[in-house]
């Protein structure tokens, strides 16, 4: 029964990982940029939500209404300026620049918010839960985050497959030159993709801030790796793969925690390396995306 409970908790936290991962996956799929500052962006979002709650007194749950648009706009601007400038050099330059950005963000957060842990206060919701049988307890918050993750991924899938901008994004991702010949401004499309990626990472950061305490270093210490591992485990090019990757990573971590509480992180990392070794294109990925 302990195992079943661990699997259930893993699935629940997996939604959060998938929410972190989809922005990373989108930016890699469309622009071939792996954003090494992805985890730190989520932490900024959590701090921004904290600030929004303090200033406007909205409930923490609703802070995303303020933070997500700011992030989407910021993402578009950053893509059109710094990231595009790096892309014009080379893909390796984008790695160096986003790594630099990560260091700047992490230390900037330490400067302005100190190294202390913070949390988004969501009142009683943090402890409210319901039980299935005697062993399995499901917190409303965890379930809510999983639902949000599924809704976001569904929405993103729908957007990419059905909307005009979604089609543009897929066209540019598939063949940039051909899209350009057809009159698409790929820089603008890159900006839109970045805006979506930043919006989802903001949601993920806020959800994480409610889920547990955060501090300036957690973005690089944990979140970036979780997001990347979920992407790789699930396989690129499929949002459902990303969701499955996040869930599998969450389950691996929770099963490791059953074995030994200190093994939670390690179990996730080893699971990731194992997938990388056996099936580098990811469990649900297409073969050529490795």
């Amino acid at each position: 029964m302990v195992w079943v409970s661990a699997i259930v908790q893993g699935i629940l936290v997996g939604g959060l990982f998938a929410l972190f991962a989809c922005g990373l996956s989108l930016m890699f799929g469309v622009m071939n940029v792996i954003n090494l500052a992805h985890g730190d962006l989520a932490v900024i979002a959590a701090y921004l939500a904290l600030g929004a709650v303090t200033v406007t007194h909205v409930p923490a749950i609703w802070s995303f209404v303020i933070v997500v648009p700011i992030f989407a706009g910021g993402g578009y601007l950053l893509q059109r300026t710094l990231l595009q400038a790096a892309l014009n050099r080379s893909v390796l330059t984008t790695l160096l620049v986003t790594f630099g950005l990560s260091v700047v963000i992490e230390n900037g957060l330490q400067q302005f918010f100190s190294a202390n842990s913070r949390a988004l206060n969501i009142g009683n919701l943090i402890t409210e839960s319901f039980s299935i049988g005697s062993q399995i307890t499901i917190a409303y918050l965890d379930l809510g985050i999983l639902v949000v993750a599924v809704v976001v991924l569904l929405g993103l899938q729908f957007f990419l497959s059905s909307s005009r901008h979604g089609r543009l994004i897929r066209a540019v991702a598939d063949d940039r030159e051909a899209a350009q010949i057809a009159g698409v401004s790929y820089r603008h499309v890159f900006g839109i993709a970045a805006a979506i990626a930043f919006g989802t990472v903001a949601l993920a950061g806020i959800a994480f801030g409610m889920y547990q305490q955060f501090d300036p270093t957690i973005g690089t210490d944990q979140l970036l790796l979780f997001a990347f591992e979920a992407v790789v485990v699930g396989g690129l090019g499929s949002l459902w793969g990303t969701l499955a990757g996040g869930v599998l990573l969450g389950v691996a971590q929770q099963l490791g925690a059953v074995y030994n509480a200190a093994d939670q992180m390690l179990a996730g990392q080893l699971f990731f390396l194992l997938v990388l070794l056996i099936r580098p294109s990811g469990i649900f990925g297409r073969k050529e995306t490795a």
Partner: peptide
Amino acid sequence: LRSGYFAITMWA
């Protein structure tokens, strides 16, 4: 692995 994959996997 290449590029970003290599970079983050080494981190892992």
